[in-house]
Amino acid sequence: MASYIIRRLIGAVVVLFGISIITFIIAYAAPGDPARLIVGAKAPQSVVDAVRHNLGLDQPLPIQYIHYVGRLLQGNLGFSYHNNLPVTELLGQRLGNTVQLALGGWIVELILGIPLGIFGALYHRRIADYILSFLSLVGISMPVFVFGMWLIQNVAHGLGILPLGGAGGISHLILPSITLGVTGMAFYQRLMKSSMVEVMGQDYIRTARAFGVPPRRVITHHAMRNGLLPAVTYAGMDIAQLFGGVVLTETVFNYPGIGQLAWQSIENLDFPVIMATVLLAAVFVVVANFVVDIVYSVIDPRISLS
């Protein structure tokens, strides 16, 4: 176990290092001048040049990256060009909101997707299964911003029972969580259904039924244990999907989280914040995949960490 953890940690560092290089190059290759955005379109060129020098943007790109990594190793994520605040402070103000939203979306995915997938497998090729498959296709195809705007128009504004947007209590999380979770719910439903259909056709399931094991126990103690493995795998990758979804979801609902901050930073060419949000998302993905590997071995002891 210890050697496995060490190998994974080394691999995680390499992955994060590679992501930082790619993100840095893409961010700084984007058209536009952050110094010009800071001082305004009418500022003289001499002022723009002075700001570029103070920010270190007039140095060669490799030198800028070396300085960035040096600050990063000291726990310094830099200073926001647009907000004039430390990036760590900006992230700290919004991280809790995004974690709550991502958790809410994940709960919506699980409590709807997995039971519906099992239900679809039990009624495979029946009318209920066809209806669920159609609804899953709609859920997967529905753009996040379209569904979010529909909820705002018809639920928040039309019925007046939930806030239109912003952050606050649990009521502010309901519509964004549903918006974020619907697409993932559809994936879980389809994934769980196909996995359970395959497992239900295995020899050991037929043997359990032949020995008179109650149908409910066959499903809960035999089929679901192996049927859940693909869903657990997807749960790790789902972290990346959630972070991608929060950008649009938080923007639609004016929800003050990391996703909205990332969108605003891209609009303002705020490179330190862009880098920090991407690296933060990468850390969550790496950690989630590591946890999934451990959970895998718990669900199915036949899988060895070595």
Rank of each mutant, 00 (worst) to 15 (best):
H53A: 15
H53G: 11
N54T: 12
L55S: 03
G56N: 06
D58W: 09
P60R: 06
P60I: 09
L61P: 11
L61K: 13
L61R: 11
L61S: 12
P62S: 02
I63S: 11
I63V: 15
Q64P: 07
Q64E: 05
Q64W: 05
Y65N: 05
Y65I: 08
Y68A: 00
V69C: 05
V69D: 06
G70P: 04
G70Y: 05
R71A: 09
L72G: 11
L73W: 08
L73P: 11
L73Q: 12
L73A: 15
G75T: 04
G75P: 05
G75Y: 09
N76A: 04
N76C: 07
N76E: 09
L77K: 02
G78E: 05
G78I: 02
G78F: 01
F79T: 00
F79Q: 06
F79P: 00
S80K: 00
Y81A: 11
Y81R: 12
H82M: 10
H82N: 13
H82P: 01
N84W: 06
L85G: 08
V87M: 09
V87Y: 10
T88K: 01
E89P: 00
L90S: 06
L90N: 07
L91V: 11
L91M: 15
G96A: 13
G96E: 12
T98P: 11
T98A: 12
T98Y: 14
T98K: 12
